[in-house]
Computed example of a mutant assay.
Amino acid sequence: MKERYDNILVAIDGSPQAHQAMMEAVEAARRNNARLYLAQIVNDSGLLVNSATSVSQILSEEKKAAYEALEKEAAAIDYYNKQIITAVGNPKRVIAFDLPKTYKIDLIYMGATGKGALERILVGSTTTYVVNNALCNVMVVK
C-alpha cells in the first residue's frame, strides 16, 4: 500500500454503494490532500437506436445527463480539490485503464454494486474486472 495517494478516482453509477464509495473517497482525498475525480461512464455497448435518433445524439444526451447527475453529487461534497469526469465507452475498460492513464490515478474507489446472477454470468461485474485489471490500487466499498 502506498503511503500517500495523489489522484483518487471514484466511479459513480447512482447506486447506494457508489454513493458510499464516494463518501469514503472524499475522506481518503482529505487525508492525502489528493485530487478527487468523480466519474460516470456512459456505456455505449449494446446501444439500441431507432432510425429517428442518431447514435451520437443519444450518447450526447446520456453524457449530459451523467454530467448533471455528477454535478449534484459534487455539490454535496465539502471538498475543494475535485473534478467531474464523464466518458463514453466500456465502463470496465475506461475505469481500469483509460482514466488511470489520462489522470495519473493511483487509487480507485468503487461500490460493490450487485447485479443479478444471470447478468453477472453473461456480462461480468465491472467491479470484479477493475479489481483484477486496473493499473492501480482499487478499494471496493460495500
Rank of each mutant, 00 (worst) to 15 (best):
L38D: 01
N32H: 14
S51G: 07
I8S: 03
L48G: 11
V140F: 03
Y103V: 08
Q20R: 13
V140D: 00
A21E: 02
A21T: 00
A28C: 09
E73Q: 11
K2T: 08
A21S: 08
I108V: 13
V26F: 01
A74H: 09
A25R: 02
E73A: 11
K82E: 04
K82T: 11
G124A: 06
M1W: 05
N32E: 08
I77G: 01
K63T: 12
V26Q: 05
A76R: 15
K115L: 15
I41V: 14
M1C: 12
K72P: 02
G111D: 08
V130K: 01
L36N: 03
R35S: 07
V94C: 06
I95F: 05
N50W: 11
N137E: 12
V10S: 03
K142T: 08
A66F: 00
A34G: 05
R4W: 04
Q20W: 02
Q83W: 04
R35H: 14
R4E: 11
I77V: 15
K2A: 12
A75Y: 08
S51F: 09
I108S: 04
I95A: 03
T126Q: 06
V123L: 14
Y79Q: 08
Y37I: 08
K101S: 12
K92I: 03
C136M: 08
L9S: 02
V55G: 09
A66R: 02
N50V: 12
